[in-house]
Simulated scan of single mutants.
Amino acid sequence: MTEIVPVSGPELVTYSDELAALMIEAVEAGASVGFLLPLDREAAAVWWRERAAAVDAGSQQVWIARDDERVAGTIGLARAAMPNARHRAEVAKLMVRPSARGRGIGRALLTAVERSAAEQGLSLLVLDTETGSDAERLYRSAGWTPCGSVPDYAADPYGTLRGTTLYYRALGHPETSAP
């Protein structure tokens, strides 16, 4: 059974090696999540550990999907910093181990983020993903709205420039007390 749980900054540090392994597997399988091949395991672990302070500060959140005590997936949420944008956040780094794909883990992670964002008073989520990717199909089927694409936006793990499609998801009206 897969369990989706938010992680604290110290927990993120604890999980950093396992998240690094997940990231490497995802990138090796072609996931365009900001990294190029070959991806060094220690560099990937450091990347995760560097997020701990932002998680503790509340500007970022990270969830993991645990499947039989193993991290099967992850997703992040980055709060907008500017005062006029505190009603929105960016979904980032949705990754599922290739061996765990096709079991609804990605959708469960996305649903957990959407639910948490709404509970926090956020009314708008945004994300970007490689045009034509499996991730894009997930976002469309989950009700996200495409709002444009940019050609040659980012390199895939092999260094080839690919287009990126931007998506948004309206969650409702912002609470007047949203931070």
Rank of each mutant, 00 (worst) to 15 (best):
R66D: 10
A80F: 09
R101G: 04
W48S: 12
R49A: 13
A78T: 14
P83E: 00
H87V: 00
V7D: 10
A85K: 13
I4R: 01
G30P: 00
V46Q: 14
I24E: 00
K93R: 12
S8R: 01
K93M: 13
A20H: 02
E69M: 04
Q61L: 12
V33W: 07
A92C: 15
A29K: 04
L36I: 11
E42T: 09
L77I: 07
D40L: 02
M95Y: 09
L12S: 05
I24Q: 05
D56H: 10
P6H: 06
R97T: 14
D67W: 09
V96L: 04
D17E: 10
V27L: 03
A78M: 11
H87P: 00
E11W: 05
A81Y: 14
A29C: 00
A92K: 12
T14N: 09
A92T: 15
L37F: 08
W47S: 15
T14Q: 13
A65M: 03
Q60E: 13
I75L: 04
A54Q: 13
V27C: 05
R79H: 14
V13P: 03
A43F: 09
A100F: 01
R101H: 10
E25I: 02
L22T: 00
P10G: 06
N84G: 13
R101M: 06
E50Q: 15
A43W: 10
A31K: 02
V62R: 04
M95D: 10
L19T: 02
R66G: 06
Y15L: 14
M95P: 04
E3L: 14
M82G: 14
A72Y: 01
G58S: 01
V71G: 03
P38A: 07
E69A: 11
A65E: 03
L12T: 06
A100G: 00
A53N: 13
R70A: 11
Y15I: 05
R51Y: 09
P38I: 05
L94I: 15
I4V: 14
P98K: 11
L77H: 08
R49L: 14
H87N: 00
P83Y: 00
G73E: 01
Q61S: 13
R49M: 11
R97Y: 04
I24N: 01
A72S: 12
V96N: 03
L19P: 01
A21I: 02
R66K: 12
A78Y: 10
T74K: 08
A89L: 10
G73Y: 02
E69P: 03
A85R: 11
G34W: 07
P98G: 08
G102C: 04
V5I: 07
N84K: 04
S8C: 03
G34Q: 12
V7Q: 05
V13R: 06
R41W: 12
D56I: 05
R70T: 09
A26T: 08
K93G: 13
A85Q: 10
G76I: 05
E11T: 05
E25C: 07
L94E: 01
A53H: 10
P38Y: 06
D40A: 03
S32C: 14
P98C: 08
A45W: 08
A92G: 15
E28M: 06
A43Q: 13
